[in-house]
Design a protein around this nucleic acid. Structure first.
Lengths: 229, 229
DNA sequence: ATGAAAAATCTTGTATACAAAAAAGATTGA
DNA sequence: TCAATCTTTTTTGTATACAAGATTTTTCAT
């Protein structure tokens, strides 16, 4: 039942499919994405595939090496740390602005999302939690009332999705994550922009040993080699 | 004398050309970019043109409306304010990290860039100042030792380039800009990360009446209509 | 058996061809 | 004269064709 209102280039939906396939690990980092194979897999010609790959390259998910093809980008651990460092700052900035600018309706949406997270946790539903968590953070992006910032934050969050999933596997992460959410909601609701910024920054950074746990998870997932810069 | 070391897809150099043509105003905001015309202008087929347009769309410079073509994106004033708000935060973050992580060599590079700015100002060379200023900020991005952040900052700075040029036309802007640079260098050199962050944030934000001057410049430049969201 | 050089194959990058959607223009009825 | 509909033209989106650069395989000399 496809009721698309705006027409979409085929290449664009292909991009989404490929994005998903990369995120789920169907095409792990380093994989060469053969245009002809992808074309036959999706039942289209090479043209829309190429266009999708170019979009993916622009968003940083794949790397196009001229005359040699598109490869799923290897993200080294240091690079990942850098990306999380920036993500933390996006979140902090969204929180700082949201504390000052959030509307009553947006605050309700944020609280609802927070409750959904709590429900998923009591229900012991990790996938549900993951999804609700995403909604929670999106609510903050929107409440920043800076559309450009919201786009950047969503974009990077999306690129880090696969790794955030791993992050939640760290022991007790979900429980402490919920406590942090509560502090964030409180800070935003009371209009304390600096508290909101700090809480969100820390929430993303996962400082101390937690972070090491996380890194070791990623290492195991990627295989030993720290590899490319 | 083209001594390109890495091969480049034709589409990629086309993207750079078009980027320049948009920045210089050859194709002003709202212009429809006709694939066939561009193809004949550059003496290539539509294929590489399309690929270049897709890249430009990904970077946000143009908008592709399915089945109706590519248009140079209109950036509304509110949107521009949002982008500067994010730019300010990128700079602040780079400064905060640079104050902690800068190497002696990088500090020398930063001071050299600062002097180049001063020389351009005494020489009364606005273009020279513009360029030296860019070098100065790039030096800070690099000194952050966060390659991902540096890429984001460079990218956005590049997208805002045309508007920053306008910004400098505001009366006395260059002089006060230089004073701010000095404060930034001092903060970074002394390792005061919060001072560096604050100085850089303010440097970009151009608060108070300065900002209104700037906005009115932009309005005049774009024509009256505040237009699209 | 090993390594270098040459040939064959594969793959990308670009050009061209064609179908379908939009836009522009012509035609008809009021 | 104006509006609505039909027709023509333009333009995008996708498929296919082809050339040149990679890659792999084969061949040959040591």
């Amino acid at each position: 039942m496809n009721m698309t209102l705006t027409p979409v280039r085929r290449a664009e939906s292909l991009r989404e499919s490929l994005e998903g396939d990369i995120a789920t690990g169907l095409y792990p980092a380093g994989t060469r994405l053969d245009e002809v194979k992808l074309a036959s897999r999706f039942g289209v010609s090479r043209t829309p595939i190429r266009e999708a790959l170019i979009e993916l390259a622009a968003s940083g998910l794949v790397e196009i090496r001229p005359r040699r093809g598109a490869f799923v980008r290897e993200i080294s651990i240091p690079r990942l740390v850098e990306m999380f460092e920036v993500m933390a700052e996006y979140e902090a900035m969204c929180g700082r602005l949201a504390a000052r600018r959030i509307t009553p309706e947006e605050l309700v949406a944020l609280q609802t999302a927070h409750e959904a997270c709590q429900n998923a946790e009591t229900a012991g539903d990790p996938d549900g939690y993951f999804h609700a968590n995403q909604t929670f953070h999106e609510a903050i992006y929107l409440a920043s009332h800076n559309g450009f910032l919201a786009e950047q934050a969503s974009g990077l969050s999306n690129r880090l999705k696969a790794y955030r999933r791993l992050q939640l596997r760290v022991r007790n992460r979900v429980a402490s994550s919920l406590a942090e959410h509560q502090a964030i909601v409180d800070a935003i609701a009371s209009g304390d922009s600096e508290a909101a910024a700090t809480a969100l920054r820390q929430h993303v950074l996962i400082q101390g040993e937690r972070f090491n746990d996380f890194v070791s998870q990623v290492s195991r997932h990627q295989g030993a080699g720290g590899s490319s810069g």
